[in-house]
Simulated scan of single mutants.
Amino acid sequence: MSSLPSLAAIRVFEAAARLENFSRAAEELGMSQAAVSYQIRTLEQALGVSLFRREKGRVMLSAEAADLSVQTSAAFATLRDAFDRLRDEDASQLTVNSFSSFANLWLGGRIGGFQLSHPDLAVRLTVEDRINDFARDDIDVAVRGGLGDWPGLHAQLLMRSLFAPMASPAYVADHGPFDTPEQIAAGRLLSPQDRWWATWFAAVGLTALPPPAPGIRFDSQSVEGSAALAGQGIALLNPVYWDEAVREGRLVQLFPATYSGSSLWVVCREHQRNQAKIKAFRDWAVAEAERGPWGEAVRAAPQLDDLHASILPGSGRSPLASKLA
């Protein structure tokens, strides 16, 4: 199988043949005229033919090179068209990845507004509960939970992860009251072995707890919240996700929310952080997080001592003393 000559030399030949001028070819390609002459000589040696005639200070295509010039220009035009189409397609489609709870309970109900404000952008939302590889999975931007310290990625704080015990009004009426952490601990906890229960009880000053009783373990907050809505017990939920259910009286938040020590971040590859479509989504998501009664609480910069802070909607941090009194 015959091999192509140097692609760099072919590129120089295409420009020089099209312009019939080595100086203008050098200017177009951003190189010196000497470098253009060198690449042409290299190509002529590889092919064993003269590609240009030099007459009176100018260069002209040789008869042997005329057909090659036409085909080379056509080939480069085809390549340019292919790359232009790829750039246009990439710029007109945004792929967002999220874990299921956030997608189902927050992002899914809002992302249509983003697309409506960017009608020329096709938006695709993928949902997976694993850490995705941006290159392998063809993702533009993702929402991740953690500390925001992923190598090679740019992470913009979206919101702090909060949690609070919640139950249906019927469950509270039948099994309450739940005015103290001890009373909550004695209730039917959903996912009782979840480590966040121990973290929440420690945050409100209750550390001497018996081993958790056997119970149902839910791997999805959306399913656990549905169980709480159905009156099956007390769930530890993110009040940002369930704000509407609380405001409508379908759930009761039994205690102020506590910062989990983790946060949600809008993440993309570092070199793509200023890409227009990614920046547009990031700015929109942050603005959405700042709206509503939880905006101040969820957008405050995470601090380590916030783990034991009690948070009420619209008030940022507030002490637990009044609740515990």
Rank of each mutant, 00 (worst) to 15 (best):
L4F: 06
P5H: 13
P5M: 15
L7M: 14
A9H: 02
A9S: 13
I10A: 14
R18L: 11
E20V: 02
S23G: 14
R24I: 00
R24P: 01
E28G: 02
E28W: 08
M31D: 00
S32Q: 04
G48V: 05
V49H: 08
L51S: 03
R54K: 15
G57A: 02
R58G: 03
A63V: 01
E64I: 00
A66N: 01
L68N: 03
V70T: 11
F76E: 00
F76R: 05
T78C: 00
R80H: 02
F83R: 09
R85V: 06
S92C: 04
V96P: 01
N97F: 11
S98N: 13
L121P: 02
L125E: 12
T126R: 12
R130G: 03
N132T: 14
A135W: 06
A135I: 15
A142C: 13
G145N: 09
H154W: 10
A155C: 12
L157I: 04
R160I: 04
S161I: 08
A164T: 13
P165M: 05
P165S: 01
D174K: 08
A185N: 07
G187Y: 10
L189W: 01
P192A: 09
A208C: 06
P210V: 14
P212G: 10
G215D: 08
I216E: 10
R217P: 05
D219I: 14
Q221C: 04
E224G: 12
E224M: 15
A227Y: 11
L229T: 06
I234T: 01
L236M: 13
L237S: 03
E244C: 09
R250I: 00
V252S: 07
L254G: 08
P256M: 05
P256I: 06
A257N: 04
V286D: 08
A289C: 14
E290W: 06
W294K: 12
W294D: 04
D305T: 07
I311K: 06
L312W: 08
K323I: 11
